[in-house]
Structures are given as C-alpha cells and as structure tokens.
Simulated scan of single mutants.
Amino acid sequence: MRLLRFAAATAAASVLALLIPTTATAEPVATGLGTAFVDDQKDELSDKEIRALWTSARVEEALRNPAKPAAMRPDPVRSVRSMAPPQNLAASAPAQGFNARTPPTGASTAAEPPPTIPVSQETPAAPQDKVVGKLFFFLPDGTPSHCSAASITSANENTIWTAGHCVHLGDGSGDAGWMKHFLYVPGSRNGSEPLGSWTGAHRFAPTAWTQDGDHDEADMAAIVLNSHANHGTLVDAVGVAFGYLFTENRTDYAPVATMGYPMQGYKRADLDGMRQMYCMGNTTDASPLNPFDDRIKLDCDMGQGSSGGPFAIQAGPNDPRIVGTNSHYDADKDTRQRVSDDLFSSEHGSHAAAVINMANGV
C-alpha cells in the first residue's frame, strides 16, 4: 500500500471543555535552535497585495482543489540532501488564550472519560473552535488550493501550524517548490470569516521535507502571519492558541482530538470542506516493528481538505497542546483508494522543534 497525503479531522465535542486554554500565557521553552535543518521563505507580496489576489472566484477554485499528496520517497532512508537535527532537540510551550466560564453543551466532565470518535463529527460552534481554520494558498504552478491549520503558541503570537505538504511540494525543487500567498481564516464555517483573515509572511518547513518529502518525521510546517490592520495579531483576535509538545520517541497519547476541514473521508459522501470536523481517540505507534518509524496513528475517517489540522492532547488543566499534524493515510497502490480509517501524523520530534524555534525568532 502507498501512503497518500491529505487533510484531516478536528476537535472532539466531548473534549471541548478540556481544550479550552486559560487566561495565562507563557513564553515558549526550547532546547537548541536547529536553524541548519529548516528551510524558510518570505512572501514577496505585501499583505494588501496578497488580499487582492484572493477574489471570490479564486477562493471557490481553491475549495474545489484541496492539497494533493506529495510523491512518496522510494524507500524510508533519508537521502544525503538533508540532515536530521540532534535527537535531543525538543520544544514545548503551554496553551494560551481565554478562560471559558462554562463548558460547552455536551462536553464531558472530569469524571467522564471522553468517548472514542473515529467517524468525524461537526465541531459545535463555540469560541474555542476558532483555534483551527482554513488555509488558502497558491500552488507553485499558480493553482489555488487549501489545507487546514491551527493557531499555535509563539513569541510573536501570530503563528499557525500545518502540514509540510501544505507549504512545499517536498520534492527537492528548492525555492520553486514553495506554495505562496497564504490566506488564513480562523474558525471558518460554511464560508464565513467570523474574525476576518490573515495573510502569510514567512513559512518554515524541515529540510527533510522540502528536500526529501520525509513523511515519517518531517511533514509539518509553521507560517508566521502578517498582523491584521484592524485586529492585530492572530492571538489578539482569536484569543486562543494551542501549546505544543515536540519530543522524540513518543507515539502513544490519550485522548487526542484532531480537527480540520475535510472534503473527502473514508466511506463518507457527506463532507464538503466547509464545516470544521473532529475525531477523537487514542494514538498508537504506526509501525511498532520498525524502531526508526515513530509516526503516530489515530482512527479517523477524515481525508483531503483536513491536511495540516492538529493532533492535540490535554497536557494539563486547560492546556491543550499539538503533538502531531494530519498528514496521510493508507491507500491501495493500484487503485489509490483509501483502505482504512487510519490517519497518520509524522513524528513531531526534533524536526518539529527546529521549525517552531525558527518561527519563534521572527
């Protein structure tokens, strides 16, 4: 079977209460920088110029064209074109945001373990659902496309986290492989922009992705946004951001909520990419017999359109953190049809830490 990239899932209704950040904020904590292992590019257009490109017609075209899978590497061995960061490189930061006075309707209490939800459901409307949004961009050939993304704690309070294949083709094409002219809409629901939109200024992805398309360890990226003329930074407007926990050799998390805007799904015909959806469950090691493959796996039916949506855990009271990103699924090598509801994330270890450290420097 071949692994195909795609966009996946959202935040679980029963754990929405768990995923509400507190009023406190904290600076990111990181060890090492990893600048030699991350590629970056600054958009050549200004905020105003990027906005002018995104006409209603181009947005509609992008909605019909979710990010496609990158070509798989012929084997799991990284090529000599890129190097891995030190294995002890790690990064962590708590969530930041608002204090919800009451949990949303249907949320689980501390005494009730959240249910497993492998069949995606629509995220109930609530203030915290705006931590995830739709990400529009142009492919290198100029075709409008889209993924999902999430607000992430950062020193600039203006950064989103997404999949590597949502920012670069991952084919070793260098500057020619970057997506461009990003437009991020937090909390989009049925085409709405409840808080407005933000344009992308800088994007960062592991060299192991941009050069080698390494889906095992490197299908992740960060985008630092331009501040909004009226609303300021993303956190100023959204009021919430996921924290993160990027560390090596950990695959089992419970419970995990994953979020996104899928247009397709496993044995689903009702997904349209316009609604924010979620799944929830426990992650496992995607390849327990291979010590060099620490991808994480979750049962979730979301497909293309939800790429770049977060895998989030509750690290502590009111402290949801990103530990993975919707990346790919199993498909038949001949028919290219999906064969299970398994949803995979690259390991978020040293490569993810290197990326967020670079974004925190902008």
Score class of each variant (00 low, 15 high):
206 P>C: 14
214 D>P: 03
210 T>F: 08
215 H>I: 13
223 I>W: 01
221 A>P: 01
210 T>R: 15
224 V>L: 11
208 A>K: 09
199 T>G: 05
203 R>N: 13
205 A>N: 05
215 H>L: 14
195 L>M: 12
224 V>C: 08
201 A>M: 10
198 W>V: 01
209 W>D: 05
206 P>I: 06
218 A>W: 02
211 Q>E: 14
205 A>T: 12
199 T>R: 05
205 A>G: 06
220 M>H: 07
200 G>I: 11
206 P>N: 12
208 A>P: 05
207 T>K: 15
213 G>V: 11
198 W>C: 00
213 G>W: 09
200 G>P: 05
211 Q>P: 02
200 G>V: 11
211 Q>A: 10
219 D>E: 05
214 D>G: 07
207 T>R: 15
204 F>T: 08
218 A>C: 14
199 T>H: 04
207 T>W: 13
198 W>S: 00
198 W>A: 00
211 Q>W: 03
198 W>Y: 07
209 W>I: 06
214 D>F: 03
206 P>Y: 02
214 D>T: 08
202 H>L: 07
218 A>N: 09
222 A>P: 01
200 G>F: 01
206 P>Q: 10
203 R>K: 15
211 Q>V: 08
221 A>R: 02
204 F>Q: 08
202 H>A: 04
224 V>K: 06
217 E>G: 14
208 A>E: 15
198 W>E: 00
204 F>I: 10
222 A>E: 07
210 T>Q: 13
210 T>P: 14
223 I>H: 00
216 D>Q: 14
223 I>E: 01
222 A>D: 05
209 W>Q: 09
201 A>W: 10
224 V>M: 08
196 G>R: 04
210 T>K: 12
222 A>K: 03
217 E>I: 14
